[in-house]
Amino acid sequence: MRNVFVDGYNIINSWPELKIIKDYSLEGARHKLIEMLQNYATFKGYKIFLVFDAHMVAGNIGKKERYGDYLIVIFTKEGETADVYIEKKVNNIGRKWEVCVVTSDSIEQQVVFQRGAIRMSSLEFYHEIKQIEKKISLKIETNGINGKNTIEDRIDEDILEKLRKILKGH
Rank of each mutant, 00 (worst) to 15 (best):
E124I: 03
I159M: 13
V4D: 00
G59F: 06
I34Q: 08
I107L: 13
M120Y: 04
L163T: 04
G68H: 01
L167Q: 14
I166C: 10
G45E: 10
K47A: 06
I159R: 12
W97I: 04
L37G: 00
E161H: 06
V101R: 00
Y85S: 04
E78I: 07
T150K: 10
V99G: 00
L50W: 01
Y46A: 03
G94K: 00
I145S: 06
T142S: 13
K44T: 03
N13M: 09
N60G: 06
K139T: 13
D105C: 03
K19T: 09
G28V: 08
A54P: 02
R2F: 12
M56Q: 15
T42A: 11
V90M: 03
G79Y: 13
D7V: 10
F52E: 04
K148R: 06
E161G: 06
T81H: 08
R2E: 15
E108D: 01
I132K: 04
D153H: 01
Y9T: 05
E108A: 05
R154W: 03
L71F: 02
Q110W: 11
I155P: 08
E65N: 06
I20H: 07
Q131M: 14
I34K: 08
M36S: 06
R66V: 15
R30W: 05
I151K: 06
I74H: 04
E133R: 11
F125S: 08
P16A: 09
I132W: 02
W15F: 08
F43V: 13
G147R: 11
H55S: 14
Q110E: 15
Y9L: 03
G68M: 02
G68C: 02
G79W: 11
N91R: 09
